[in-house]
Amino acid sequence: MSDLRAALPGRGIWDRLTALFWRRPGVLVAVLIAAPLAWLGIVYVGSLVALLIQSFYSINEFSGVVVKEFTLKTYAELLRPANADVIVRTVTMAASVTLASAVLAFPIAYYAARFARGRWKAAFYLGIMLPLWSSYLVKVYAWKLILSKEGIISWAANGIGAGGVLDALLALPGIGGNSLSTSYIGTFLVFVYVWLPYMILPMQASLERVPQSMLEASAALGAGGLRALWSVILPLALPGVIAGSIFTFSLTLGDYIIPQIIGNSANFIGMAVYHLQGTAGNIPLAAAFAVVPILIMLVYLGIARKLGAFDAL
């Protein structure tokens, strides 16, 4: 018996590092999160702060030069009817897109979470994810063709004698237009199509976590399907619905391409930011516009929390 020690002799730097991490678990955590934390802190939060600061600057109307003094002038500018219109229009669109996505996504997510098994489940994931793999621009231009006056929808509607219905829809004041591709209805349809997967996936994940025995308990106590849906399934799936709505709502709030290609060229927040920081060179107002979606999302989350959306988490 030569070696009677309880501990094995160290075998170089890795053994010593392992021992260090074992003695001080905090060191390991620090090493692991230093890089992502620096990225978040500097690149992400830093640029947000820069944005916020910019929004408190103003622009000299004659020279077009940014005046680097803190003022609320730019925010006052935001409330001018033309700009306030843009905000109201964008928020209304985002809210309707979110609502429609939720209504469309629920049955799909419910089927996938409760009934689909094996091969069908794989088909479901593929079906949801596939559209996300092709270019966003390709999809939007494809929709422009689908929705256009000579497109497949008008053709099919006329073919089955429903051309009148389409015309009546387009004649609706406010949301109608010359054709689907040049109306708010078209913008809305494409938004819903493009963001729907972001609603389905979190919804499906949260529905999957509702135990079968809870639905059975509800039925055993005499509840029918609708009562179970309203009192048990929806409240338990609410965190997923909220997560999905955060995606669809904020993605719609910030998008500047879809309303530019499809619709009646009405201004949305994203387009306003794009023009103001580019051609117009009004960085402070662009920054102020960019702060609006952030504020709206904060208010939205606050309300969701008050309503108990995260209680079941």
């Binding site: 135990p211 025995s213 809870m214 059975e216 308990a217 039925a219 055993a220 106590l221 005499g222 509840a223 029918g224 009192s231 048990v232 409240p235 338990l236 108990g308 209680d311 079941a312």
Partner: peptide, 20 residues
């Protein structure tokens, strides 16, 4: 007769209390 129309009730193994 579906479960919700039976004069029968169940105490589940995992209790199945509604967490919300």
């Amino acid at each position: 007769v579906p479960p919700n129309q039976r004069q029968v009730n169940t105490v589940f193994q995992d209790y199945a209390l509604f967490p919300h």
